[in-house]
């Protein structure tokens, strides 16, 4: 088991390295291939009014003339050891992990990311909880009552949930619940958990449900299909033949086996959730990472983009790592290979 964990950790780390290289390549190198000169990139730091000489100097100091490998090396060094930026007008120290400075605001990227992380995290965790519980419960119930009214109703709703885009369901619920009924705040509201947990939850309720709806629908359908299959397995028949009560047969034997693939999916989804969060945050104008990323991309603020991508990638990689480890705990057959 230990070697398995170590192997997986190394794999996860390698994955992050590859992602960072690719991202770096896309945002720093490809623009140059596409004709962007080091001067053009440097001019983003000093403003359009600067003289060509200043721009040239800054580009040199920022290392834009160096070979890609050196640039990437410096970037990684910044991540782990921090970096010194010399603009000519004094030296700025950027402590590790240093993602550089925003082109636009001139602020270091990392504190910005840290600022927005709790928002995205709150959204993701709350929604994940809701969708797993609701999705699995609905899936199990409809599988056990296949063909019933409940089954048809929930599966019909689930189909809608899978096929409707988030901004649509989001907008509809905003219109109905906030503007119409006035049950929830109209978006944009954010209270830190440590300040007022009730307020925090109240503000996030609608975004949670909107986001969870999409995933819960998928999970309900998957759970239902998985349960239908599992309940036909020979070992379920064995469990019944032992004289086990039906509820235990369903939970201990049926659900146990069904949950394993769902768990895998959950890991991937939790990572991908960042994508969903982007849309949800945009809809509800929440000050999270998603919104930050959209802004960054719109303004071509490379250090910011790089930061968001790496943090997001870390989400995905860590989530799938945790799930893989859990998987090995749950399914004893995995450990062997």
């Amino acid at each position: 088991m230990l070697t398995y964990i170590i192997r997986r950790l190394i794999g996860a780390f390698a994955m992050l390295v590859v992602i960072s290289m690719v991202t770096f390549g896309i945002f720093y190198v490809v623009p140059q291939w596409a004709g962007a000169t080091p001067e053009a990139m440097a001019s983003r730091y000093v403003g359009r009014a600067a003289t060509p000489e200043t721009v040239h100097l800054v580009a040199e100091r920022l290392g834009f003339y160096d070979p890609v490998v050196v640039q990437y090396g410096n970037f990684v060094k910044g991540l782990f050891a921090g970096a010194q930026y010399d603009y000519g007008a004094g030296v700025e120290h950027c402590p590790a992990p240093c993602f550089g400075y925003s082109f636009i605001t001139g602020q270091p990227v990392w504190p910005d990311l840290l600022d927005r992380l709790p928002v995205t995290f709150s959204l993701a965790i709350g929604a994940a909880l809701i969708w797993v519980v609701a999705g699995v419960a609905v899936g199990v119930l409809s599988a056990l009552r296949r063909g019933s009214f409940f089954d048809r109703l929930t599966m019909g709703t689930a189909l809608a949930g899978v096929s409707l885009p988030i901004f649509f369901t989001g907008m509809i619920s905003l219109v109905v619940f906030s503007y119409g009924l006035g049950w929830t705040p109209p978006g944009g509201a954010w209270t830190d958990f440590s300040e007022n947990p009730a307020e925090w939850a109240y503000n996030l309720l609608l975004p949670w449900i909107t986001l969870a709806f999409l995933f819960a629908a998928t999970y309900a359908r998957l759970t239902r299909a998985g349960m239908l299959e599992t309940m036909g397995e020979d070992y379920i028949r064995t469990a019944r033949a032992k004289g086990l009560r039906e509820r235990q047969v369903v939970v201990k034997h049926g659900l146990r086996a069904t949950l394993t693939p769902i768990l895998t999916l959950f890991g991937i989804d939790f990572g991908l959730l960042i994508g969903g969060a982007i849309l949800t945050e945009t809809t509800y104008t929440l000050p999270g990472l998603g919104q930050y990323a959209i802004l960054a991309i719109r303004t071509q603020d490379m250090p910011q983009v790089m930061g968001v991508v790496l943090v997001a990638a870390m989400f995905v990689v860590i989530a799938s790592l945790v799930v893989d480890l859990l998987y090995a705990v749950v399914d004893p057959r995995v450990r062997l290979s």
Binding site: E233, D234, Y235, R237, T238, A239, R240, A241, K242, G243, L244, R245, E246, H253, R256, A257, T260, V330, D331, P332, R333
Partner: peptide
């Protein structure tokens, strides 16, 4: 009938691999 199953009457199935739960010892 459930309370008799396993106690008073029990069954052995054809395929022992598929008839045992893979996740429990």
């Amino acid at each position: 009938v459930r309370s008799l199953r396993g106690k008073k009457m029990a069954m052995i199935f054809q395929d022992p691999l598929s008839s045992m739960h893979p996740y429990y010892t």
